[in-house]
Amino acid sequence: MRRTMLFLPGNNPNMVMNGGVLGADSIIFDLEDAVAPDQKDAARELVRCALEMLDFGGCEIIVRINALDTPYWKEDLEAMIPLKPDVIMPTKVSGAAYIHELEAKMAEEEEKNGIEIGRTRIIPLLETTLGIENAFEIARSTKRMAALYLGAEDLTADLRCRRTKEGNEIAYARGRLVCAARAAGIDAYDTPFTDVEDLAGLKKDAELARGLGYTGKAVISPRHVDIVNAVFSPSKEDVAYARDVFAAMEEAKEQGKGAVSLRGKMIDAPIVERARQVLEAAAQIGGMLDE
């Protein structure tokens, strides 16, 4: 499940320690923007200890490393790859060449540590206009690619416009990124909603992203996790309908019928596929299938 991807500052012991219990599907240990330059090594050390010692309860583990034009990213990878995080998140990704440079170093570290090459996946942060324009190229640049992630704050600076809650200024980027990700067969993560207190605004923003086809949304506050999870989870009605779809398919099969209809509508392949996705998601969330 990739409904929520929660940022945890890599230099905050309380947050790092408790990252697994905040309800997020994925947690991002941030070595980049949340950590001041003179704290980079301390954050690396704290995250290293946490990954060595603690169990994060099945959360997908992501480490956001520093950009490739900084002196930190290689050390980040050297410290993190041996700990087998699920995903490395590079920032300010502008094209396939960037990913190729990154994955060469990742492969080097994997080999050095006896880890299967290609095990560590990549979710790049696309937060420049060039990155958005090259989204499909980036999405297909490596087999490691797990999802694309839109970062709207830096993007709007690059676009030379103001970031608003309505998000009209990032409508194109949202559409372009999700289309590129889906075309490449991977997930798409929406940008975080940055007003921690505005929970109604958050819900609206998450619903917009879900409506566009996004898999989930990054969050910068633990308080946002449950709302985003709920928006990106199938509803009870969705689950009931999906079950009915499969029941109707089964019944038609028994009766030897070719065409299957449910509630007066034909069931075609996309409907069955959506139903399968809904039941799969519900099974992963747990509990929804008991009722």
Partner: peptide
């Protein structure tokens, strides 16, 4: 409280 851990416990 705004402490996310306290809120998680409370929930």
């Amino acid at each position: 409280p705004k402490d996310p851990i306290a809120l998680r416990i409370a929930q």
